[in-house]
């Protein structure tokens, strides 16, 4: 067993075999120690991540479905509420219309009554006026004639006069 400097730099010797053995040992040790557990761990985690992703996807889908359902329900409710409001408004309008009609009728009724009363009073007033005209006319005529005028005798004459007068005065008055 002795050491010496080998001249030949590219010489092959038992280092070749030793290195093969060394490398085989290193490969085995690293495989057992590092690569196998690490790759197993990574695979396990990838699987877990995949399952979690799947779960998350499912959850999201469910949530989306729920949201769609909620939105649909909300829209239905909204439509319904609008329907109800419209119906109420129509009813209110109907009621208001009815009330307006009633009031109009009443007003007309009152107006008619008032008109009738006015007419009646007018007629009465005319009648009164006519009578007072007649008396005045008779009085005036008796003054002019110097004698009593029999009212009954000259009724017809007077009446004609009165009616002429009446028409004129009434026309003037009105």
């Amino acid at each position: 067993m002795h050491l010496e400097w080998g001249k030949v730099v590219t010489s092959l010797n038992w280092t070749f075999v030793f290195n093969l053995v060394n490398f085989a040992i290193l490969l085995y040790v690293l495989k057992r120690l590092l690569f196998k557990p690490a790759i197993e761990y990574l695979d396990r985690r990838r699987e877990q991540v995949a399952t979690q992703m799947e779960t998350a996807r499912k959850n999201e889908e469910q949530a989306k479905k729920l949201v769609a359902e909620r939105t649909g329900a909300l829209q239905t409710a909204y439509k319904q509420s609008r329907h109800i409001v419209e119906a109420a408004r129509a009813q209110a309008e109907e009621i208001i219309g009815q009330g307006k009609d009633g009031a109009k009728k009443e007003v007309e009724h009152i107006l008619e009554n008032a008109r009738a009363q006015i007419d009646q009073e007018q007629a009465e007033a005319k009648h009164e006026l006519r009578r007072s005209y007649a008396e005045i006319a008779v009085l005036g005529a008796s003054r002019v004639l110097g004698r009593e005028v029999n009212l009954d005798d000259h009724r017809r004459l007077l009446d004609d006069l009165l009616s002429e007068l009446e028409e004129d005065t009434l026309r003037m008055k009105l």
Binding site: M1, H2, L3, E4, W5, G6, K7, V9, S11, N13, W14, T15, F18, N19, N22
Partner: peptide, 26 residues
């Protein structure tokens, strides 16, 4: 450009290897 070579003789079987290289690979 030379290397240290260890010659080992065990009985009538002898072999040689580069001692430094083997140690370094260890």
């Amino acid at each position: 450009g030379e290397k240290l070579i260890l010659h080992v003789t065990l009985g009538n079987f002898s072999f040689s290897f580069d001692i430094l290289t083997v140690i370094m690979s260890w």
